[in-house]
Simulated scan of single mutants.
Amino acid sequence: MLSRVAESLFWMSRYFERAENTARFLDVNFNLLLDLDSITPVDHPNYWKPLIMVMSDPEHFNSLYQEYDAHSVTDYLVFNRKNSNSILSSISMARENARSIIESISSEMWEQLNNLYHFLQSVSPQQVHSDPYSFYKEIKNASHLFQGITDNTFSHNEGWAFVQIGKYLERADNAARLIDVKYHMLTTSPARHSDLVSGSVDIIQWMAVLKSCSALEAFRKVYLSKIDPENILSFLILDRSFPRSIAFSICAAQEALWRISGSSPHRYANNVDRLIGKMEAEMSYATVEEILQQGVRPFLEEIEQGLARIGEQLHLLYFAYHTPKIEPADISEALPFTGLDGRRANWSQSQQQQ
């Protein structure tokens, strides 16, 4: 497989997953405010700022908008092309990657991705504000349909493995960021009760954290008692059967990498497999007590940094353009292949935000 095809498959999948996660977080936040509206004021910026902290850069947001509210945050995370993490930007870049390898993917995959792109072009901010539920449901359903089409119409070869790697690395990163921000805000807010989650506001907010990962129903089936922060951490970080937990995502990404390299549990073939194998082993033997003792934020920051290192090594190993190290005496003979029109092939997306 050509490295440019593998890279485009990886980023196509990763950007689609990013768009779905953004839509999921915004949808849950709107529903959270509806639930809280009858018992507490919901016009405080703290109900919107965490979304920017999870999905993008607060400094960049502050340079474009005056305050954190429903209109500004929605515009920034949905429509703003200056924000590389907005839904419109993510789907646009996923489409560009798919278009560059249209001969390598199924026609159904391209049709689904192209339909979603044109749907976003036709939607106005006023429509989203008037009916956010329908809009975000459309994005989430489109992502689920795309993943189902990919699994059923795309050969499960090396290309499919790169699609899985992109999806699960992005999912693990988003989950870590969400838990980091939300857990820190909820546990450091002024306590009005002796128990952190005894108040109705706290319970609703912890439920929103689970809903952001589509985990509320699955969590209830495992933990029948009241919602507890330690149980939520255990489920969203360490549970190996829930497909949106961090541990499950890392394990799935590792299996996809093994399909490509041929590594095994006791033998790694390259540095990418070593890094993700080390992270998977640490997650396998971690406990909630150890996470709390170390500190939730430091633990999740290590995961985020580890995922970034895996992404960097993945790029260097499979996607990067490698020039010859030894040049012959005749410099003209040492020039590498430069692609069409004598220009160097622009295959790398390393400058894009991972």
Rank of each mutant, 00 (worst) to 15 (best):
L233F: 03
R4F: 01
N46L: 09
I102S: 11
L314N: 03
S261Q: 08
F146R: 01
E59T: 01
V5H: 06
V42R: 03
E158P: 06
S63N: 09
D75F: 06
A98G: 07
C213R: 13
D341E: 06
H315W: 11
S143A: 14
R192G: 15
D69A: 06
L238K: 07
A175D: 05
N83F: 02
S234Y: 13
S107V: 07
Q293L: 13
R171M: 04
Y68C: 02
L36N: 10
L116C: 06
I165G: 00
F154N: 04
Q313V: 11
E17I: 05
R244N: 09
S104M: 14
D131W: 12
I227V: 11
E108L: 12
D35I: 01
M12A: 06
S104I: 04
P328Y: 09
R297W: 03
R81S: 09
T153M: 10
V42Y: 02
R274P: 10
F25N: 01
R240P: 06
S100T: 06
N62Q: 11
A253R: 00
R18Q: 07
S155R: 08
P58M: 02
Q353N: 14
Q126F: 10
L317K: 15
P45D: 06
L77Q: 03
Q313D: 08
F146K: 02
R309S: 14
E111K: 07
A176M: 07
S263N: 03
T188N: 12
D195A: 09
R309Y: 12
E7L: 01
F30W: 09
N62E: 11
F16P: 00
S86K: 02
S107W: 12
L210P: 14
E290F: 13
A161Y: 01
Q294M: 15
A6Y: 03
P265R: 04
M109A: 14
K140Q: 03
I105N: 08
A286H: 14
